[in-house]
Design a protein around this nucleic acid. Structure first.
Length: 254
DNA sequence: ATGGCTTGAGTGTCAAGA
């Protein structure tokens, strides 16, 4: 089974890229973040024509998450149980016997800001819920836009980014907290090129100069880690006209 | 340079992203 995560930064704008990419890669499950659309405008028909079902939890303008998949999608759940949140940032569903959790973790804006506190609270609630969810579902994958670069090697300029948003120690501690639940970073199970990133700023030729961060991740429960055969970042869609600022991350499970 | 792009809202120009 081939699984992937992609922050598309508006599904309305990026739908042609998504459809082309699905056809080219033949992934079985694709988690989307920042659809920026309400459910009634979600392109269910276009995806169905391509052979994919979908579940979506969205809102106008901001956020919005979806799981696009071939085959049966069951036991759909939106949001973190017990954590009241207006923002549509998490959707979970079971596909092919695997629990797929698609998350758009808050950006945090600036260290010390109100949004930063919200981000840390959100991560704490996520970890608390996942601890139980992993018992219920031994085969679980958490994928999405984490808005955290876990280590300095995930940052093009670690000195400039030191203690900045996406790289601060409390954010990295929260990421390690997820690993301590038993989750593994699929990307780091394999040898990878140096300076591998999943997001590049639109400004200042960020992509051409490879000034990026690795903030999109696929984390696997122990029951899936042993089945993971590969994990990579596909930079091809980032090179297209009017790209998302994020590239998809793909993993293959036996 | 709290800037530099891009998106959605909505028709002015701003909020938000990362």
């Amino acid at each position: 089974m081939k699984i992937a995560t992609w922050n598309v930064n508006s599904l309305k704008v990026r739908l042609p890229h998504v459809l082309d990419w699905l056809a080219a890669t033949q992934v079985d499950v694709l988690c989307l973040q920042e659809t920026k659309t309400e459910d009634k405008a979600f392109p269910y028909a276009e995806l169905a024509a391509a052979g994919y079902g979908a579940v979506h939890d969205g809102q106008k303008t901001y956020n919005g998450v979806a799981i696009v998949a071939r085959g049966d999608v069951s036991a759909v759940h939106c949001g973190i149980p017990g954590f009241a949140d207006e923002q549509k940032r998490l959707i979970a569903a079971t596909v092919g016997g695997v629990r797929m959790v698609c998350a758009y973790i808050p950006n945090g804006q600036a260290v010390g800001s109100e949004k930063y506190e919200y981000k840390l609270c959100w991560l704490k609630a996520l970890a608390g819920w996942l601890r139980e969810e992993m018992v219920r579902y031994p085969k679980l994958v958490l994928m999405g836009d984490y808005n955290i670069a876990p280590e300095d090697r995930d940052v093009h300029d670690p000195v400039a980014w030191k203690d900045q948003i996406l790289c601060s120690e409390p954010e990295r501690m929260a990421f390690r907290g997820l690993l301590e639940l038993g989750l593994s970073d699929a990307f780091r199970l394999f040898e990878q090129p140096e300076k591998s990133f999943s997001w590049w700023d639109y400004r200042q030729m960020g992509f051409r100069l490879n000034r990026g961060l690795r903030i999109d991740h696929i984390l696997l429960s122990p029951g899936l880690t042993s089945l993971c055969r590969s994990c990579s970042i596909d930079k091809a869609p980032r090179k297209l006209e009017r790209p998302s600022d994020h590239a998809p991350v793909v993993a293959e499970l036996a």
